[in-house]
Design a binder for these strands. Structure first.
Length: 605
DNA sequence: GGATAAAGCGCG
DNA sequence: AAAGCGCGCTTTATCC
């Protein structure tokens, strides 16, 4: 599929734009093309000839961050055809730890210093008192010559990097190079489609949360004998804790400064009414001040278009920003009412609204969620090929933590199941004994004992761990089945299992997006992926096609997976209203078993 | 007044 | 010897 030698005809293109978001109407005002022949073309305001270049199927196009430039070029009537290459993807595959801006990538891989335009532009921005955040919007106001030099300079660096890196990346990462480039148009469509937002619901939830915050602030100010209390100040929280007399009972310390921690875990264990009020206020403050205000800030015509970056993480997972849609609170994910009720009487108060209610499904559509269950434990089973783990995972209906608990403790008692789960996850995450002890509410020696029990049960795990440590010591990186290299320093060997499991899982799930496109979108063009939440792919489908698509979607996610030592079953959920109403759908003989009345209630034909 | 570190917290 | 992993975002506190 991928040739090891450079293509014969290629052009690097860079656009200068008046902003970063096509959905806000931003578009290019200048562009540059540098051909492999050495020919340089620069456009400003008038893009004569650019359309023909972009439309040439036989001319490979090279970008630094292709998703951005391709979207922008389409905005001025120059859709990009033919093969697209992205040097930023090359850099990310070569070493995921390093910075991904053009300047630092050039310094890393090119022999000569990049031109000093970057510093010149920064000087100009400073001289004109432009804030860092407004830098992008002010490129248009740069002195024309400076802008032209910058645009040509960036495009020249891009083509030089392509020359230098293409042969290395094509040879070292054939699978991932293909996979990541296939994602460019798919992710672009995901971002442009976006999520519909219920602004009325956002407003109501904020109003409610602000009254909760106000109430808690009054309550704390009263205790402090003061007019104000700042809920977000750990300093004031500690003063409150001292006055209320529970600060000495806090055992958890902050990481850097070793002060008594005011985090939820510390406050939760206290069973003190003032601590409970603090917890409530802090939660309300985060829900309103982070999640809801982010949605309001980035909504355009009731739609949020989160930025999705396939090169945004060390592990290979996506990152999401403006707003981040990968950390929207689940119902009951934060404080539960029962937890606080025993400390303060909150009768008649809804503790927290469900933020996922805000994310609506477009009328006439449904959302399908499909997630690979137990993904990271499965990856551990694959790499270790452990008899016990593979045995348990071979039957998807098994409760893995109950099964492991049975083998470790000869019991599936709830408390013991929690312990074995904590040790398994602790292992996957590289936790120390102290953290495991805290998780199981036990002593350090308990933690040591549980760890030893798991190592006896699955001797392949410590063996795998030491193999990874050896590879890190000998060559500086570990490599997943997809061929992704994860660089780690010997002092970071404890993270190796996590990086392998998280990284392999991430590549496994995200490479299902091209499969969905080839096998399903070709047949159902209205099907549109919206989000990849690590082990989950969310898509929008027309209501009248839900029943038909659902089994195929699950089947494609399962069948097109790479081959592992264990099956990776996919579970499916559907909603036609909002993210909060997601309903899991069971399958029998490859057909969905709809819950009683579900189809009628959701207008599914 | 802007930039940055630290703490805190949501998700998988 | 010791180490929960990966993110993005907000606020406070502090520095220049």
């Amino acid at each position: 599929m991928i040739s090891l030698t450079l293509p014969t005809n290629f052009v690097a293109i860079d656009t200068e734009t008046n902003g970063l978001y096509v959905w806000r109407g931003h578009k290019p005002f200048a562009a540059c093309g540098v051909f492999n022949s050495g020919r340089i073309v620069f456009w400003r305001d008038d893009f004569k000839g650019l359309k023909e270049i972009c439309a040439d199927e036989n001319l490979h196009k090279v970008f630094f961050n292709a998703k951005f430039d391709c979207e922008m070029l389409a905005m001025i009537g120059c859709p990009v055809k033919g093969r697209v290459w992205d040097v930023r993807i090359f850099a990310h595959l070569l070493d995921g730890r390093q910075a991904l801006n053009l300047d630092s990538v050039s310094r890393r891989y090119l022999p000569q210093e990049p031109p000093k335009v970057v510093a010149e532009i920064d000087d100009w921005m400073r001289a004109n008192k432009i804030k860092k955040a407004d830098k992008g919007a002010n490129f248009k106001n740069l002195p024309p010559d400076l802008l032209k030099r910058r645009c040509i300079g960036d495009t020249s660096l891009t083509i030089k990097l392509f020359h230098r890196l293409y042969p290395v990346v094509a040879k070292t990462f054939p699978l991932l190079m293909e996979q990541e480039h296939r994602l460019i148009p798919i992710v672009s469509r995901m971002e442009r489609r976006g999520f519909l937002i219920d602004l009325e619901e956002v407003h109501e939830q904020r109003m409610y949360l602000e009254t909760v915050i106000e109430h808690v602030q009054q309550y704390c100010a009263g205790i402090m004998d003061n007019d104000f209390f700042n809920l977000n100040s750990p300093k004031q929280q500690r003063e409150l804790a001292a006055k209320a007399g529970f600060i000495d009972q806090i055992t958890i310390k902050t990481k850097k400064t070793k002060q008594p921690s005011m985090n939820a875990e510390a406050l939760r264990g206290l069973h003190h009414p003032v601590a409970a009020m603090l917890l409530l206020g802090k939660m309300a403050s985060q829900l309103s001040g982070t999640f809801l205000s982010q949605i309001q800030e980035h909504e355009v015509d009731s739609v949020v278009h989160a930025g999705l970056d396939s090169c945004g993480t060390l592990s290979g997972r996506f990152s999401s920003s403006k707003p981040n849609l990968l950390n929207i609170p689940a119902e009951g994910g934060h404080l539960t009412k029962e937890e606080l009720q025993e400390q303060v009487d909150f009768t008649g108060i809804d503790l927290a609204p469900h933020i996922k209610k805000v994310f609506k499904v477009r009328p006439g559509f449904a959302h399908i969620h499909a997630d690979k269950s137990k993904l990271e434990v499965a990856m551990l089973a694959h790499y270790t090929n452990d008899k016990v783990l593979c045995g348990i995972l071979s039957d998807p209906s098994n409760d893995i933590h109950a099964e492991i608990s049975q083998l470790m403790f000869e019991s599936t008692d709830k408390g013991l199941r929690v312990r074995s789960k904590a040790v398994v996850f602790g292992y996957i995450y590289g936790a120390g004994d102290e953290v495991i002890a805290r998780r199981v509410h036990g002593s350090i020696s308990d933690a040591k004992e549980y760890r030893r029990k798991l190592e006896m049960l699955c001797p392949t795990i410590p063996r795998f761990k030491s193999q990874l440590a050896t590879q890190i010591r000998d060559r500086g990186y570990i490599e997943t089945v997809q061929g992704r290299r994860h660089y780690l320093y010997p002092g970071e060997s404890y993270m190796a299992i996590n990086r392998m499991c998280q990284g392999t899982g991430a590549d496994e799930v995200k490479s299902r997006l091209p499969a969905i496109e080839e096998e399903l979108i070709s047949q159902y063009p209205e099907l549109c992926p919206l989000l990849n939440i690590h082990d989950d792919i969310v898509s929008e489908v027309p209501l009248e096609q839900v029943e038909e698509i659902l089994p195929k979607y699950k089947e494609v996610m399962e069948r097109t997976a790479l081959k592992y030592n264990i099956p990776l079953p996919v579970s499916v959920g559907v909603t036609t209203t909002s993210w909060a109403d997601l309903t899991e759908i069971a399958f029998e003989d490859g057909k969905p078993v709809w819950p009683e009345g579900f189809k009628d209630a959701n207008n599914i034909p």
